[in-house]
């Protein structure tokens, strides 16, 4: 049985929650950061998403592909050991709603390539555990999972 390829997450423009929050927008995120028993306390999330339902673009738009490629090329190396995890945010099978990069130090967030698509909001969080950075070079999604989650490997 394969693991679920996403986990719902709610964002109201200021804070993140794994429980539904009235008025907050729901996104699908990589489930792996939430599967760990030891989330990183006091981490910083750069949430490049908006609570407005109209803020969406197709996942396969060149600018979204470009941000994923930039993440592999230099964003992950730039963050170094500070990186906790990153995930794009899916809205449905085709819709991209944003991305979250989580780090121990927010100093580099001004360079976040995902902020080219939707502006970033800095959020202090205890929700995310550390997940190995995606090795690349695959930027396509696996069966609709929010990149970099998913795989075609049989589990």
């Amino acid at each position: 049985m394969s693991e679920p390829s996403y986990r719902f997450l709610w964002f109201d423009g200021e804070s993140l929650s794994l429980e539904e929050v009235p008025g907050a927008r729901r996104f699908g995120a990589d489930p792996r950061p939430f599967a760990t028993s030891e989330p990183v306390r006091g981490a910083w999330a750069h949430v490049c998403a908006l609570p407005d339902d109209t803020a969406r673009v197709p996942y396969d738009e060149p600018e979204v592909q470009g941000a994923r490629a930039a993440a592999l090329a230099w964003w992950i190396p730039l963050l170094g050991d500070s990186l906790v995890c990153l995930t794009t945010l899916s809205l449905d099978s085709v819709g991209y709603g944003g991305a979250i990069t989580v780090a121990r130090d927010p100093d580099r967030f001004r360079a976040d390539p995902f902020a080219r698509i939707f502006p970033g909001t800095l959020v202090r969080t205890d929700l995310f555990g550390e997940v190995a950075a995606p090795p690349g070079p695959v930027i396509e999604r696996y069966a609709g999972a929010p990149w970099p989650a998913g795989s075609f490997a049989r589990s």
Partner: peptide, 29 residues
């Protein structure tokens, strides 16, 4: 990147040297 396959390069260079070489090449693998 789009075809679900992965190049991986291996050498005896330290990670810092590989990072510089990779960046110079524009590699994303």
């Amino acid at each position: 990147e789009v075809a679900y396959a992965r190049p991986v390069a291996v050498s005896i260079d330290p990670p810092a040297v590989q990072t510089a070489f990779r960046a110079g090449l524009g590699a994303r693998f």
